[in-house]
Each structure stands twice: as structure tokens, then as C-alpha cells.
Design a protein around this nucleic acid. Sequence first.
DNA 1: CAGCCAAACGGGGTGGCCCCCCGTTTGTGC
DNA 2: GCACAAACGGGGGGCCACCCCGTTTGGCTG
Lengths: 180, 180
Amino acid sequence: MTSQQIPQRADWRRNRERLLAAAAEVVARDGASASLEEIARRAGLGSATLHRHFRSREALLTAVFHEGVERLAARGRELNETAGGGLAVWLEELTRYTATTRGLAVSLRPTVDDSGCHGMLADVAAELAATAVRAGRLRPEITVDDLLALANGIAIRAENDPELASRLLRIAISGVEPRT
Amino acid sequence: MTSQQIPQRADWRRNRERLLAAAAEVVARDGASASLEEIARRAGLGSATLHRHFRSREALLTAVFHEGVERLAARGRELNETAGGGLAVWLEELTRYTATTRGLAVSLRPTVDDSGCHGMLADVAAELAATAVRAGRLRPEITVDDLLALANGIAIRAENDPELASRLLRIAISGVEPRT
DNA sequence: CAGCCAAACGGGGTGGCCCCCCGTTTGTGC
DNA sequence: GCACAAACGGGGGGCCACCCCGTTTGGCTG
């Protein structure tokens, strides 16, 4: 998924794990703008090593969030089996999770080559959306990318506030006018 | 609105204008994270002077965007006189404008003391919302703050893409299900 | 088990940024 | 014009990203 070639030497793999563990801590505290130097320090490695392992801040963040994003994707596939395919439920879980996981929301913006976290979710989202359209619960002219962008915008804005994230997403899904 | 006391010496006012002009250029190019040093340099002033005029990045951004935000507020009051009070129209204009004015979306997040740009819009938004509720076009349990947060999240996400901003806002306003 | 060498490491340099201290200049009221 | 508060700005401290290049090390081979 990221720019990892054939893992080579043992120390290389060990250091990668150390870097990811340190990054997880620091990013959880400071968000996407965490200091790369501090991450390297905390891993007991030189900052050059960090840069060799992860060419960019984005590559590092992608690796840090990889597991959580996979879990979200799996959850989406699971929900897609339920009656009506729980698009709305999934979007809310997605938004809450990305809002409360510091730095993740920013990392979910699609990238030029789509090598980041976004690509991993786009597929599940598309399935859920298709099911929802079939069930008459999603207007067909709304694209998956727009749905994801909406959830992403809400998550960025509601960083650290899951209640706000849920509320905003529900408004966006049900609209603003009284139900007729 | 910002931390401006009684404007005192002539050079003080002159320098303030120079700083704001430089800031407008650089922020338009680089967004909210523009380099303060570059702004000072471009204004032909020392960076210490910039810090004396604007205690924080946020204070500077607030001043830079002041005029545009006032215009948005005025536009809101104007729309509030029309039939049904154009809440939806205003929200879309707001979102488009903040999405395309680099750095503004970030500056519109409410601040602790609410001395930033947000306060200037909260009042108009409240009027528009009240009118919309009376016209049966807004569920009363939706708060103004949530509406603004939603528009703000969309604008942050759709930075530099007015079409995306419009589309997302319309989805959020009309909801995701087919109109019954 | 030793020796070799590509792979991997990391100290430290470069250049940038923010923020502020404090000695210097300047505008203004008298 | 003069005195003095008001305002300025050079430059230092501390942090950061990024990268060069001399040094260490893992693991293969015989």
C-alpha cells in the first residue's frame, strides 16, 4: 500500500516497527502535524532513518492509520450484508472514528496518486452506496466521492468531538427541512 | 473586534496597512499557514513589528478577512428580508466564499473568546435560521452552531473547489434520500 | 566461523520558521 | 526645536524538515 519494497534486513523491519509505535503515540497527542524529529527520537533512531523509511509525512501517517482504516473497511463490508446495507450507519461510524483519531481525518483526503488511506475506503463505500441506491435510500446522482468528502469535512471540523461529528453527519444525511 | 487599542501614531497606522496588504497577498497564495516572516519582509518591516501589531497568527488572519466577512454578514441581513429568508442560499454563498478564500475556512472556527471571525457571522446566521424555522424550512432542533459547523467543515474540505463546496452543501441541506 | 560488502544507520549541516529582548530611531505635543 | 514615550528592527534562542556522507552492521558465502 505504501512505498515499501521487499522488506530486506532484520534491523530494517525492527526499526520500522519502532518508528510506527513512536509515531502512533506522538500523532495521537499532536495530530497530523506531529514533529517527525520527536518521533525519531522517541524511537531511539536518527531522523534520517525515519526519512529513509517514510519519504513523506503522508507516507508515515498512512502507515500509522493503516490498521484502523482496514478495520473500517471490513466493518463496511459487514454492514453491506445487512438489510438495506447500512450506508448511513457506516458513514456515521466512519465520521466518528476519523473525528476522534487525531490526524486521521486530514490523512483521508484523496491524494494525487490515491496511494493514501482514501483508496482503501473508496471501494467499500462504493459497494455500500450501490446497495443504498438499490434500496431507495440514496439518490443515485450523489457520487461516492461526494459522500466521502462530506464525511471527511465533518470529521476534520469535528476533530476530537464525536458527538458533534455524529450530529453533523445525521443532519447532512437527513437534510435540514422538517420531515414531510 | 481584534486587539486594536486607540490607534496612536501615524507610522503605526501606516505600518498596519502595509502588513495587512502583504498578509492578504501571501495568505491568498499560501493559506492560513503562510509564513509570518515573509509577510513582514514583503511589508518592508521587521518581524517583531508584525508580532507587535498582531499578537497571534489568528489575530492577523481575522484582520485580513474582516472586510470579506462583514460583506457576508451584510448579505445575510439582506437575504433575511426576502420571502422565506434565504438561509439555504446564504449558506451556499458562505460556503463557496470561505472555500475559495484561502485560509478563511480555518479562521472561521469558533475561538475560545469568540473574538475571531466566527462571532461576526453567528448573529446573522441566527436571524436567518429563525426566519427559516418560521417558514417551515428548517427543523427547529437543529442549532445555528451546527449549521455553521457543517458549512465550515465543507468549506475546509473543499478548499479551492467552489463546485465541490456547492455540491456538498446542497447534499447536506436536502439530505441523501430521494425526495418523497 | 571469518570475511566481505551492500544495506542500513546517524551525526550534523543548511536553511527556514516563530517569538521576543533590548538598544535605537522617530513622531508629536509642548 | 526639544524631550520623551511610542514604535521599530536586528539578531539570538529554540524548534523543525530534509539530506549528505562517513560509519556500522546483518547476513551470505566459502
